[in-house]
Amino acid sequence: MSGTLADLKVGEQAEIMGFTDELLSLKLLEMGCLPGTVIELTHQAPFGDPIAIKVSGYTLSMRKEEAATIQVKTK
């Protein structure tokens, strides 16, 4: 199943496929969100935004609109 990171529920894992926002993608890449990496949605702040994911062993937070620019594939 493919979609964006914003669609995941807490506890779900997915694999990063690509990005839709060129500006954000550099920052995300630098932070270790590389295509092919498996991530897990670990927390949602009150009202579901921002979210926190586990990526290559650490916790990264981002806003929902930013998560929506990350295309993922769930298993």
Binding site: L23, L24, K27, L28, M31, P50, A52, Y58, T59, L60, S61, M62, R63, E66
Partner: peptide, 11 residues
Amino acid sequence: EKSYFIMELPT
């Protein structure tokens, strides 16, 4: 202006 909130949560 676009602002973002991509931030590490340290241990």
